[in-house]
Design a protein around this nucleic acid. Structure first.
Lengths: 241, 241
DNA sequence: TCATGTATACTACCATACCAGTTAGGGTCA
DNA sequence: TGACCCTAACTGGTATGGTAGTATACATGA
């Protein structure tokens, strides 16, 4: 009995699509990294990935570069490329930025959100509860992301959401690591609900506090994770150049 | 009499360096775009740039992709690549994110900055005044960036500064456009000073207000610029796919 | 005159070949 | 035995060739 439906690390790239191959390779690799299919510290070779996906090295290389920009892959020229280990400092740095941006976004949402938009937020909350009832953790994480995204997009903060998306990647690896076990999902829904309530009552300050508290709680289990999976963490000893 | 010392748009890539060519090409192109050497709307060709810089197309292509990620270049597959026009909406989106992050950073600085660090900030302020006296706008912009960066790095917000750096690119094009004329530089120094004063007195709230006001003022002239240089702006009519 | 089909000259994208630097392993010699 | 060097098998970086798609100029037709 496997934890995932599919053990093969990567799903094949479907042809007959005019979307650039490099972009699809990037998405697939990013997905695999965030979902811990590739473990932190593991070496990745351009040639290997290209062979697995049935494409040439060129698009794989471009994907590698973008992954490096996203802070998920470390490219050591003439030596190799490695999944960066989870760094507690880096994750908290990402959280810091995410909190700053999302707190600003939710303040705007409290000021500008329309009743229709608030209704959409609540609809998402209901689905979150359903996903929890059905023990569907993956579905919950999707809804969670959709929830935060919809708040940002509802007030036209597309670029802000793009920034948050990048910061999330760092955090989500840690979250995925802690997922099958006890993550107090109902508690997260309660926090989401209080965020929406504050938005609905146009209380910007309360919305900011709720969002801030929510984002700080997410990583509460990080130190424990570091102890449980020491090999996956960096322990903030930056390796020499 | 030219506005720049050098009219040739790009400086040649110096060889005898082990830094990847692609990275240097990226930096040089980014510099040229932000400094309005390449005008918004202008087409850029991989082959052209490669010939001008004396390198092959491959590193140029990689630089193009990174520029596209930074929102400075639009790559239209099988059609061409174009310097994106300045979009008032996009610039304000960038400012929104930058304000969110830097306000959070400065709050932390007010809480944690040491006397030595505050002394460094003040030293930078003095140099800003000198640059203004010498009418050296370019130098002032460098010091301005260094000022904001030093605040972020002083409290360990390296990643936050990296995010700010990306958002700045959008804003700086507009700032460069308005630079030779009347930008009230002394006023900016006064704002910088009040930020440092708030940090020095460990008044987080005051520091946040000062930073927020400062960042909002920077783009005050943007609507006027749009009227003066209509060809360089997007007017937020998103062109069809 | 104007609409339409077509040839051509671009473009970015992908594949491939080659290059230079790093690393690991094994053999050699003190 | 141990330190050293050399070689072979990688790595990512760069250069180049080939392909498919698009825009444009121009000829052709009504």
């Amino acid at each position: 009995m496997e934890r995932d439906q599919e053990r093969p690390g990567l799903r094949p790239i479907d042809m007959d699509s005019n979307e650039p191959v490099a972009r699809r390779v990037f998405r697939e690799l990013r997905r695999a990294i965030v979902r811990m299919v590739f473990l932190p510290g593991q070496a990745l070779s351009e040639q290997d990935i290209a062979d697995q996906l049935g494409v040439s090295r060129q698009p794989v290389r471009e994907a590698f570069i973008k992954l490096a920009d996203a802070g998920l892959l470390q490219i050591k020229p003439q030596r190799g490329s490695f999944i960066v280990k989870i760094s507690v400092r880096q994750v908290f740095d990402a959280r810091f930025v995410r909190e700053a941006v999302e707190v600003a976004v939710v303040a705007r949402a409290a000021a500008e959100a329309t009743p229709g938009q608030i209704e959409e937020f609540r609809a998402n909350l209901k689905q979150q509860a359903i996903a929890i009832d059905e023990r569907d953790h993956g579905r919950f994480m999707e809804l969670d992301e959709a929830f935060h995204r919809s708040i940002a997009l509802s007030v036209g903060c597309d670029y802000a959401w793009r920034v948050v998306e990048e910061t999330k990647a760092q955090m989500d690896r840690a979250r995925y690591l802690s997922m099958p076990d006890a993550t107090p999902l109902p508690r997260l829904v309660a926090q989401h609900t209080s965020i929406v309530d504050a938005i609905a009552s146009h209380d910007a300050q309360q919305a900011q506090l709720a969002m801030s508290a929510h984002l700080r709680e997410i990583l509460a289990s990080l130190p424990e994770l570091e102890k449980r999976f020491p090999a996956l963490f960096n322990h903030d000893i930056p390796d020499p150049p």
